[in-house]
Simulated assay, not measured.
Amino acid sequence: MTTPKTYGKLIGASLGPGDPELITRRGWAALQSGARWIYPVKKAEENSYALSIVERGGLPVPADAVELVFPMTRDPAALGKAWALAAARTVELLAEGRDAVFLVEGDASTFATFGHLARVVRELVPHIDVETIPGVSSFAAAAAATGLPLAEEDETLAVIPTAYGIEVIDHLLDEFDTLILLKVKPLLDDVLGLLERRGLLATSCFIEKVGAPDERVVRDLATLKGEQVNYLSLLLVRNPKRQRGELRRGCRQRQEAREAAGA
């Protein structure tokens, strides 16, 4: 009878968006548990932002830490190959029987690489144990850094990648009290134009590399026009012109109409 191979556990450790003091106690313990560190890079032997967060926290990088390459491209073939290689390498490491902790900037469950990696790993070996350690998201840290509330009482909130496009963003401004626009770099000027047309520049704020030593907060958004900002940037957009609680009232009215019709 063949003895089943024993695999280590794959741990996604959320590190927060830049400030090592935002790493949770649970995440800190995982980093010091003896598990092998795995960290993402965009190109081979390139600096890892996730790794830099831990280094600023004072932890030395283990000599046997392993980088996984996740290229910044929209080419499906290139992405598919990279994901397959990363997952295969992760399974290979876990097959040694030792846990592996994957370093995640921000929160591992929010627009993060870890969820996809874990899914592909489990497609290869379904019984591999996966643990996700939650953390502080970039937009939560940005709200705290700027003093802007994300949502109060019955206000509504939406979080979307800016790549969804200007038409979608324009529509959502009518549906939500606060919009969080992630990865604004490619469409920044277009978004600024939209906010200017809708009179929302004054109630919006730009945050770049929140929590990092070179964090930047810009409240005068007009000064950003034409600028090439960092990839790790976002916009918090508050729409005070939208009637508060509108979505909840609409849902309540529809519920009351259904109840009346069924009476």
Rank of each mutant, 00 (worst) to 15 (best):
L51Y: 13
G115V: 11
A112F: 06
A87E: 03
K43M: 03
L93P: 04
L59Q: 06
L93Y: 12
A118D: 07
A118F: 08
P60K: 10
L51V: 15
S109A: 14
K43C: 03
V91L: 00
A44D: 05
S52M: 13
V54G: 07
R56P: 02
E92R: 10
V41Y: 10
D99Q: 11
S109V: 05
L59H: 07
D75A: 07
E67V: 05
A65C: 06
V66Q: 13
L94W: 00
K42A: 15
V66S: 09
F102N: 00
L79P: 01
V54K: 00
A77E: 15
A87K: 08
L68N: 03
F70I: 12
K81R: 10
D64C: 02
L94F: 06
A108P: 06
P71F: 10
R98I: 14
L79Y: 04
D107I: 05
V41I: 12
P76S: 12
A100F: 10
I53E: 05
A77C: 02
A50S: 15
F102Q: 07
V101E: 02
K81Y: 04
P76Q: 11
G80W: 05
G57H: 07
G115K: 05
A100M: 05
E45R: 15
R98K: 13
F114A: 01
P76F: 13
I53G: 06
L59A: 09
A88G: 09
L85A: 14
A77M: 03
T90G: 04
A84T: 14
L85T: 14
A108E: 01
A86L: 00
E67Q: 15
V41H: 08
V66R: 14
T90N: 03
P76I: 10
T90W: 13
V101A: 11
S48W: 01
R98Y: 04
K81N: 04
V69M: 01
P76M: 10
T90M: 04
M72A: 09
L94N: 00
S109D: 10
L103P: 00
A100V: 15
M72E: 13
G106F: 00
F114V: 10
E45H: 13
A50N: 11
V61W: 01
G97L: 09
H116V: 09
A95G: 14
G106Y: 01
L79Q: 07
K43Q: 11
A118Y: 08
P40A: 08
L68M: 12
A108Y: 13
V61H: 02
L94P: 00
A78L: 11
L93D: 05
K43Y: 06
